[in-house]
Design a protein around this nucleic acid. Sequence first.
DNA 1: TTCCTGGAACTACCT
DNA 2: CCAGGTAGTTCCAGG
Length: 922
Amino acid sequence: MQDTFCLSVSSKFSFGATTGKERGLQVLTSLAADMKSAEEDAYSYTPNVSLSLPLGMGNPCLATQYHTLQSSPVISCHQTGYSNDNHAASGYYLPHSLRPNGAPALESPRIEITAYSQYPEDEVEESSSEDHVIKRGVNSIVTLTLPNADGYRDPSCLSPASSISSRSCNSEASSYESGFYNYDNSPQNSPWQSPCVSPRGSSMLLSCPHASGPAGSPHHSPSTSPQIGAVAEEGWAAQPRGSRPNSPSCSGGGGGNGMGKRKYSFNGTSYHQTSCSPNQSPTPSPHGSPRVSVTDDNWLANTNQYTNSAIVAAINALTTDGVIDMGEGIPIKTRKTMLDHSASMSLKVEPGGEELGPDGELCHEDYPSRLALKKESYCAGFLDVPQHPYSWSKPKTYLGPSLPALDWQLPSCSGPYNLQIEVQPKSHHRAHYETEGSRGAVKALSGGHPVVQLYGYMESEPLTLQLFIGTADDRLLRPHAFYQVHRITGKTVSTASHEVMQSNTKILEIPLLPENNMRAIIDCAGILKLRNSDIELRKGETDIGRKNTRVRLVFRVHINQPNGRTVSLQAASNPIECSQRSAQELPLVEKQSVDGCPATGGKMMLLNGLNFLPESKVVFVEKAQDGHHLWETEAKVDKDSIKSNALVVEIPPYRNQRISSPVHVNFYVCNGKRKRSQCQRFTYLPPNVPIIKTEPHDEYDSLGTVGLSMHSTTYYSQPRLTPIMPVADPDACLVGGYPSCPPRHAAMPSSPPSSSPTLHDLSPVAFSKCLPNSPTHAAPPGPMAPPIQENPGRPNLVHPPSPDHNSSLGMLHSQGSPNHLNSPGRHSYHPIYTNSSPSSSPVSHPSTPGGPVESPFVQAYSPGQTQAAASSVQAGGSSPSLLPEDASPPSMAITVKQEPQELDQMYLDDGELPQVKSLHII
DNA sequence: TTCCTGGAACTACCT
DNA sequence: CCAGGTAGTTCCAGG
């Protein structure tokens, strides 16, 4: 953590110093390195680390910083709200843990930053209890120069690639680039919001003292963005990419790889890009800002979210102030850039015809000459969006700082609310490159499109459903660095949407209307693939693009509560394979009729999926934590029953017929060397244990009981698990392993909740695994944030968790629960999850811990509670009962930071080693 | 004309 | 260092 801190700080400096592109790069690089180290540390699971983690789950450091930067101003507010009022809440995002720890000033600062990011210092001060901390944080934040950090990642990554391609400009790239800027800009923070919102937002903010003043500043908010811009610039500098040209140049085809080698020398160029990018993104910003003001206002009025947005806006306004402060650390140049970007980038306005005029104009204006070319596209993008009854005008606001970072793990249900994916997306969707045309929207197996519905929401105000592309690996769910959601427009698209950049992640915002039963058909979301080389060049980026081709659609909804709190729910889809090749060659197991059976085996299991061949084999394997194969056997496949999409296998007897507790193993379908499906979970049960059937949708429930994996979920999750397993403790991950998860948490240290979040990051893997639903998600660990956020200034309230399901559970599910999707109704989640959740919860969420059901949230908010909860959860939750094995300490004891989850598996299978960045044994 | 798609060529990298 | 294979990225063409 400390390191992290230092890093961040350094980054700032760098920033300041960085004026020089190259230097900036270097700095960035160094920072990145630091960042990584920090992350690793976090993973390592040091208390301190844990703290850091909260910031950026996936990329904690970076992300965090980003947020921080952006958020910094905001943060103060939030904190106020959250932290002050809710310790728990704060913990939630913030690292209570820190406090618990006694958190050194350092830590606390970070955390807060990360979590909310964005409060004006003033606000911070206001915050009472945590104020001190917060202030520190703020200060630190300011000092941190978060912006820089942000800049790093974002800029580098996105901008480069995206910016380059013309398309990129338009679509994703633009978004990307914009994203950079956006990030900061990110609606929330940024600019546009602030502008629009500000007025109302201010009012909103009023609730939060902090906000008040600032509101006016909204416009200023951009200032905040500037920071970002600065970052971005530098980052960009790193990458040259003029545009596609570069990439292509790199290689004809494979160029991408080569790109990685691209040198910063280009930076200068990149710089431009950066600037450009902003422009591109600008569209958004420009539009956004102007429009926003209008729109936002409307929104605010209309939606709760707005409320949030309003808050955000207020924050932004404040931020502005804050920005200024921050500005100190940042080079003037940078600031300007940032500002611009922010403005431009922040939002892409879509649709609304309303915006069209303005947007288009704005966009053009903002854009640099270069952009001009692309401008059209951008603008077009905005304009294009089909109108809906529902007007988007102001959407995004809520993105604001108050909202949890994208890498935070959130529950899918809380109290009466339950966000579910009613219709899951197909397991394969070929993502398109910026150099390609769109490959259309993600589709559902049925041929339609994914459907998401929010249950339990009885208000008349529409809400905004956020969608972004998340990872599908074992680690905690977080925005996928190599993929971005791509907004699809056209006659065939019935759902309105608009893009927003948050951090480096593009978010598609879709209206959830009461008249539609709070149900949205996701026919407007495609997936953009970013060149690996572009992303890997980002500072702070630790993930590897190669074979990291699985993603999940992550949906979020933020519901404002009468008490001022905001309930944030998240649901992640089943994994989606995005590569052309794998989609054509690799077998895929989508469903398994049985999750487990007695050790004697002999039962038949039906597998549904894709690419099954007559020569397909089904192999059951059991790996030790260290990855060693303990057992492997080929199951008998009923050749006669093999179809491309289904096959029947006879479950082989387990090596030990006398197991006293469930044993988790994996199995996969193999079509040949290197052509094997992801590992699926399977549990051998003691003779007297009832067999659980996986039913496609309900599984969770059953699982809950047994802790068995969920079928569908399993599919992908397993893979992840697999990787993890080898490394850390597979078991933990294993479905059955849920218990294990808890243990981990426990192990995790309870580190104070605060820390926990961070920690979670580490543990995430485990979590993810644990979480049946979304293996991927695993929301886990660390970052799980309580579903409910308190608004600034508010006391910590506890939300009654949803009675139905343990809120905590729900939360867990949400993320992982693609399965859930199927059964919309099912809110209920398995306690098991809860257990798992605990793990996750421990950290951030109280909610998670919520295992306890209702109060999870509360816990989350109150640090103390959180911890307690977490621990309790873990301990109790771990459901030792569930699986002794899982409980097996090993899992708990060991925390591994893995790289791309999937990768791990894949690599492992291939012989490639999953990368274990660090393995800590507690 | 634009958007989608499906296929496949190219190239870099890994084994 | 070379060959074979794999995977990422870019192109092309048809609906």
